[in-house]
């Protein structure tokens, strides 16, 4: 659809584009700052204050070399990818089913079920009982402790519910008349219509799982080989925190200059894969979003 360009429209467009450019700039700069700092000369980095637009001194990869020499990083990457995929599959299935059930107004359990699920958003038992449940299920120190308990949550179900609510009932009615069962309706007919929302909750989940160190720190104390990247990263960040000096030995090995550099490098190593993967994923995401299409 071709828009008529009135003067007010032109002004609006100019302002809008200018705002977007400015906003993008503000979004990018701090990340750029960290990236450039991670390549900087560590000594000059310390004396610097303010934004770093290009690496200070000669570009150095020392920090990255130090971080990558830590073999945990590779282990962590592998585990994180596994956890992200596994929880996403469970989460999507659970949220689709949950959202479908809740949105089904003539299904008698939808209201009690909604309440049942919503309560979990409000109340949680806390760390100790949670641990005991995982322990009694025999999941402690296994991958299951990360994959199963945290994946389905009320928030995603509620999001799917409101997405289902927006769909015209006609789809389901006609499918029912054609003799399709609820499962067929859900996965074959309705889900493709909700690609966009599914894409959104997948993205939520991927980011959350990518940065989730807490569950692993609680449920996997004996199995470092199962830890996700985020937990290793947190260790490295905290390890280099000289304000938490415990002993002389710790202090002296930590207080060298590269400690500061390492933080920036770890940040980049932990963030960059997501940042790089996102534009590719976005292709599908946007395609999903534009199903309903702003054609004009």
């Amino acid at each position: 659809m071709v828009e008529k360009l009135t003067p007010s429209r032109v002004i609006f467009n100019i302002l809008n584009y200018a705002f977007m450019i400015l906003f993008s700039f503000v979004c990018v700069i701090p990340i750029w700052h960290v990236l450039m700092a991670s390549l900087s000369n560590p000594r000059m980095l310390m004396a610097n204050s303010g934004i770093i637009f290009k690496p200070l001194g000669d570009i150095t990869l020392d920090g990255y070399r130090m971080v990558m020499s830590n073999k945990s990083i590779i282990t962590g990457y592998g585990n994180t990818i596994l956890y992200v995929i596994a929880t996403t599959v469970i989460m999507v299935l659970g949220s689709l089913v949950g959202g479908f059930l809740l949105s089904h107004k003539d299904f008698k359990l939808s209201l009690p079920l909604a309440l049942f699920i919503m309560v979990t958003m409000m109340f949680s038992g806390g760390l100790i009982p949670g641990y005991m449940v995982i322990q009694s299920l025999g999941m402690l120190n296994t991958r299951w402790a990360i994959i199963i308990p945290g994946s389905i949550n009320a928030f995603y179900i509620m999001m799917m519910k409101s997405a289902f609510d927006q769909l015209p009932a006609a789809y389901e009615e006609s499918a029912t008349i054609d003799g399709a069962g609820p499962l067929t309706i859900l996965f074959v007919i309705l889900t493709p219509l909700l690609k966009a929302t599914v894409a959104v909750i997948i993205m939520f989940n991927v980011i959350m799982q990518w940065n989730n160190w807490f569950n692993a720190s609680i449920y996997l104390p004996k199995r470092r080989d199962l830890w996700p990247l985020a937990l290793f990263m947190r260790e490295i960040l905290i390890n280099n925190d000289t304000s938490k000096v415990a002993t002389q030995q710790d202090a002296e090995s930590a207080s060298n200059m590269t400690a500061n550099l390492v933080k920036y490098c770890v940040t980049i190593i932990g963030t960059l894969p997501l940042l790089c993967a996102y534009p590719f994923a976005q292709k599908y995401f946007v395609a999903g979003v534009q199903m309903g299409g702003v054609k004009g």
């Binding site: 692993a216 720190s217 104390p221 004996k222 830890w227 937990l231 947190r234 260790e235 905290i238």
Partner: peptide, 8 residues
């Protein structure tokens, strides 16, 4: 050994 993550 049961050794938690640093910080935990």
């Amino acid at each position: 050994f049961q050794t938690p993550a640093k910080g935990s």
